[in-house]
């Protein structure tokens, strides 16, 4: 681990002021500290934000405000969230382990970095995300957990290539729910729709999000609850618990009898950010809740997907999971 300074602040303003060059906020530390041990992250200072407040959840049918320091466990079990946004609750509970969820914060989860092996191990020479311009070792490496949608693929040596995925479960639900992220920086506050918060790798794979290095996440807000009665979070993974998604699907349906009025659909484990497809939602809206409709939506969601040597299976797996999650959502919600 590199030497670093540690400072603890007790208010959001103080946190923003404390953020010097190359400093990082410390939330639960479950991602940042690991990456510091591996030598991937080398902040000069850790600004501990665990005591700045922002740790409350306010949720009812009309909307929700979730403080950036709310722990994943507290959020998943908040009665207002469970009753009105069960999709978010289930996505959270399917992530990591109880111990990690007790530590992990909402802001930290939004910001967690990819689990790409070549990013996490500094012994691999090429990773555009870790060492901009160095190339992408994953493209021709062991890429079973990598992206099939929205990736930058210009060959292993290109400074743009990146096929990493966003590993979060929470984020997938936030995308389906149309969440917004409230942030605060030296230039004041701004609101970023979560869909725009994370980036596709594009020409800058080293940038995961649009958050500026000097900005603090204050909270996440949710619009009025549309999917409280019909939603499902489905996670396909290599073991029953404590594994990142191979593919996950957050499906929310607003039903009008047997017809779908509106839909929120997002996929995890397939792209550099949770994958939300307007075409897929369009294929659902106004249609009867049948397997045929769901299959069309699945095809639309996966349109243009491209697999690699070890992850080609994700295309078909994702389609099956989309259909299943929508089918389940059309019938109700997951038992809590």
């Amino acid at each position: 681990m590199n030497p670093f300074a540690y400072s603890r602040v007790d208010a959001p303003d103080a946190a923003i002021h404390a953020l010097l060059q190359n400093a990082k906020f410390l939330g639960g530390g479950t991602n940042l500290v690991d990456l510091m041990k591996y030598g991937v992250e080398r902040p000069s200072t850790l600004v501990d934000i665990n005591h700045i407040g922002l740790d409350k959840v306010q949720a009812d049918a009309n909307g929700a405000t979730i403080g950036a320091l709310v722990r994943n466990s507290d959020l998943a079990n908040d009665p207002g969230i469970v009753a009105n946004y069960p999709l978010l609750s289930h996505a959270l509970l399917s992530g990591a382990s109880a111990q990690l969820r007790n530590r992990a914060t909402t802001g930290g989860n939004l910001m967690q970095r990819t689990r790409c092996y070549y990013f996490m191990d500094t012994a691999f020479p090429a990773c555009n995300k870790r060492k901009p311009g160095s190339g992408c070792a994953a493209l021709k490496g062991f890429n079973r957990i990598h992206a099939i949608l929205g990736q930058s693929d210009e060959g292993s040596t290109s400074p743009h290539t990146c096929i990493a995925t966003n590993p979060s479960d929470m984020n997938v639900a936030l995308y389906a729910l149309d969440a917004k992220v409230e942030v605060h920086g030296p230039k004041g506050k701004r609101t970023i729709p979560v869909r725009d918060f994370h980036r596709l790798p594009g020409d800058h794979p080293e940038q995961d999000t649009l958050l500026r290095p000097d900005e603090l996440i204050l909270s996440v807000t949710l619009p009025a609850a549309k999917f409280a009665k019909n939603s499902w979070y489905l996670k396909a993974r290599d073991r029953q618990s404590y594994a990142f998604a191979l593919v996950s699907v957050a499906a929310g349906l607003e039903m009008d009898g047997d017809r779908i009025k509106t839909a929120g659909l997002a996929l995890g484990g397939v792209a550099h950010k949770p994958w939300r497809s307007a075409e897929a939602e369009h294929a659902l809206e106004g249609k009867p809740a049948t397997e045929e409709t769901f299959e069309k939506a699945a095809d639309a969601a996966l349109a243009g997907a491209k697999g690699y040597e070890h992850n080609a299976f994700k295309v078909e797996l994702a389609k099956q999971c989309v259909v299943r999650a929508l089918m389940q959502a059309s019938k109700g919600v997951q038992a809590s």
Partner: peptide, 30 residues
């Protein structure tokens, strides 16, 4: 049967999943 495998990168000869997060063994739920 279901979980364990070390994946060695064929160009570098390094195990890519060299942690207990990525090298899977059963958890209670399994």
């Amino acid at each position: 049967a279901l979980h364990e495998e070390a994946h060695i990168d064929l160009r570098y000869g390094r195990t890519v999943n060299e942690s207990l997060a990525e090298y899977h063994v059963p958890v209670n739920a399994d």
